[in-house]
């Protein structure tokens, strides 16, 4: 076995050496939406044509599972665009390479890991929101909700849909934000009541908004970015930001510990926090790490960043298992959809 490993690392090393001479290939794991990826790589390569990115893209849950499964056999060089909560899990497993990218001091502190040197840096935030189908709501005489608590009104019974926090990062940020907003006890009480109105829980975070856009379920708890896209596509929806404040999740980047392409990885991470990069993130995300870059995004609710709660990612990461277990215990055993 050891011989094999040696052989492998030698060949990998050889590949690495020959790689730097020509063009370095970086394997980058990401959960960024497919349609944005090509743009990211293109913009990056304008500045660094010598680094080729091999994207490994999937949903947040899958990428996280993949990275954890590969803990002892890492395939990725860099993680670029994955939920910060996931990066905190990797940090706890010792899977990340601490590195302070050039210019990290310019970023909003919220977007940088607290360790020194930081193990990850944030890019942008995606923010929870309610997608509200005005056409279907009118048919059903549903009033537009303005707050989370409004959603508890029995009039919405069976007309709400939200992601399952166990499989969806968006679902989890909703749950963790409610626990932070309403306190532990209040949060669960809120969810107990909400559960009575939920038609079903989807596996993906964008699905509730898409289903609301398609009129399948009039109200979807999802995230604002997705709502804006559906609205741009012509769906009759409003994006509602609940008055209590909204949970949010950060997309962040990090270097995978033990990468054979450390220099190239650092180059990518340096670039990922530049102004150029942040302007690029701003195309889809209204809130980005570089202060003063963000411009309004079409169909995005204004002042969204004011509504963002002061999210405690450490709380979210360290209590993730316990929260999900409790959530499953309360709501997952229900076999019949209402």
């Amino acid at each position: 076995m050891t011989n094999w490993k040696n052989l492998l690392s030698v060949s990998v090393l050889a590949a690495g050496i020959s790689g730097t001479a020509m063009a370095t290939e970086l394997t980058v794991y990401t959960a960024v939406e497919a349609e944005d990826l090509a743009r990211y790589a293109e913009t990056f390569n304008k500045d660094h044509p010598d680094i080729t990115i091999n994207w490994v893209r999937d949903s947040t849950g899958v990428v996280t599972a993949k990275l954890l499964a590969e803990k002892n056999n890492p395939q990725a060089d860099v993680i670029w665009g994955l939920a910060a909560t996931s990066l905190l899990l990797f940090k706890a497993e010792g899977m990340l390479e601490p590195y302070a990218p050039k210019g990290v001091e310019l970023l909003d502190k919220k977007f940088v890991d607290k360790s020194n040197p930081p193990q990850w840096v944030g890019m942008d935030a995606y923010v929870a929101a309610i997608c509200f189908n005005t056409v279907e709501a009118a048919k059903l005489n549903l009033p537009a909700p303005t707050s989370w608590k409004d959603l508890l009104d029995p009039v919405y019974s069976g007309y709400l849909i939200m992601p399952n926090p166990a499989s969806s990062g968006t679902g989890f940020l909703d749950v963790s934000s409610w626990l932070q907003l309403f306190g532990e006890e209040g949060g669960w009480k809120f969810m107990d009541a909400l559960h009575n109105n939920i038609a079903r829980y989807t596996h993906s975070g964008s699905a509730p908004c898409k289903l609301a856009a398609a009129g399948e379920i009039p109200i979807g708890i999802s995230f604002a970015f997705r709502g804006a896209k559906s609205k741009a596509a012509g769906a009759p929806i409003d994006i509602i930001v609940p008055s209590e404040g909204v949970g949010w999740e950060m997309e962040a980047s990090a270097i995978v510990a033990g990468t054979d392409n450390l220099e190239a990885a650092k180059t990518l991470l340096d670039w990922s926090i530049t102004k150029t990069a942040n302007e690029m993130y701003n195309t889809g995300y209204a809130v980005v790490a570089y202060p003063g870059v963000a411009k309004a995004v079409e169909f995005f609710p204004p002042n969204l960043s004011d509504a963002m709660i002061d999210n405690d990612f450490e709380f979210a990461a360290n209590n993730r298992t316990a929260i999900l277990e409790e959530w499953s215990r309360r709501y997952d055993g229900k076999s019949d959809p209402k």
Binding site: G61, H203, L324, K334
Partner: peptide
């Protein structure tokens, strides 16, 4: 069941949820 199962849990989907959703291998 993944597509149309809604909240109705079945074994095959549970495997997927445990592994992909919760990373509980």
């Amino acid at each position: 069941p993944k597509v149309i199962g809604g909240q109705f849990n079945v074994l095959a989907v549970d495997i997927y949820k445990q592994v992909i959703g919760q990373q509980n291998f």
